[in-house]
Amino acid sequence: MAKELMTVTEGATQVQVVAFKLRREEYGFNILNVKEIKGLTDITRVPFASDFIKGVINLRGSVLPVIDLKKRLGLQDMEYTDDTRIVVVREDDLEVGMIVDAVTGVITLNGEHIDAAKSVDNENSRFITGVGKVEEERLIILLNLEAIIGLQDEIK
């Protein structure tokens, strides 16, 4: 995904992201990675799993792991509301659900409006590929799905 965004910045083409809220910030996944968005359902806790894995849900008969995205990014927890959604994303052949506070829509970002990740100084910078700017004040933090799913780093 990092590579995808890179070509986007260079080529000044457009990228579409699914934007969502985590607390007061807005984040986005490349739309090509998003499979579906569904409302909150029963989540079954999985003993001994990493702490950022909230549990598993039943997605039309198959078992789907769900990541608590706020916990993964080191953000403060928040009560679930009616707006809480599970964004089902896919990276390679792995499907994962992400709990987000609200989905805000699909946004088209112009390549030149995306700053590379380096400009964001944050301990979680490895999860972030860049920041996109829409309209005047609206910033969307683009997430690195690979790093979030954490297949390459050891699962604690």
């Binding site: 999985v46 001994f48 598993v56 039943n58 198959s62 078992v63 789907l64 792991p65 792995l94 499907e95």
Partner: peptide, 19 residues
């Protein structure tokens, strides 16, 4: 029996899940 998938592979005590 359903597998838990790559992300949750190798958990001790849990061998899988079911709906």
């Amino acid at each position: 029996i359903k597998t838990l998938g790559k992300l949750l592979a190798g958990l001790k005590v849990i061998s899988g899940a079911t709906v």
